[in-house]
Amino acid sequence: MKKTITLEVNGVPETADVEVGTTLLRFLRDGLDLTGAKEGCNEGECGSCMVLLDGRPVNSCLVLAVEADGRSVTTIEGLGKDDVLHPLQKAFLSHAAIQCGFCTPGMIVSAAALLREKPDPSEDDVRKALAGNLCRCTGYRQIVDAVHAAATEMRAAASVDDEAGSGRLAAPEEVTA
C-alpha cells in the first residue's frame, strides 16, 4: 500500500508516494539518489545506513519511510556544504581513517551526532558512540583519532565564533533566528 509523505532531507522539502514496507534507507537511496548511506546488514547491526532523524542518529534500515513523514533527515550528503567538507570528513581523510570506505558515511554521521551532544568527548565516549558502526577493513584507532581531531577543530572554530560574536549586542542565536 502506498502513502504520501512530506519530509525535509538535508534541508530540502520532499514529497513522495512510498510503499509502507519501504525503509527510509531504500527511499533515500532509490527515491532520492542519496547513496551515501549504505545497505550493509539490513538488520540494524552494522551502522552503515546511519542518518540523523530529527537530529538523532538512527539505523535507516530499521525505520520505515512512512515513519519519517513530517520529520527532518540529514544524511552524509547534508553534513558538508557544497565543496566544503565537514571537519569530520576532513579529519577522516587526513588520519587515513578510511580503507574501503563502505562504513565511513555511517561512522561520520554517528560521530557528528556525538559531537553535537559532547563537543569534547573522551576516548570511551567515542568508542561507545561508534559501537554500532562496524568497520571490517581496519582497526578503529585511526577512526577514534580522526573524531578527536575533528572535535578539536570544531571547538576552536566555535570559540572563534564566540569571540567574533562577543562584541555584538545580540546573542548569536538571536542573530540567526
Partner: peptide, 9 residues
Amino acid sequence: VGAWPLRQR
C-alpha cells in the same frame, strides 16, 4: 541494549 543509535529508536 544494542548500541547508542539503536537506543534512539
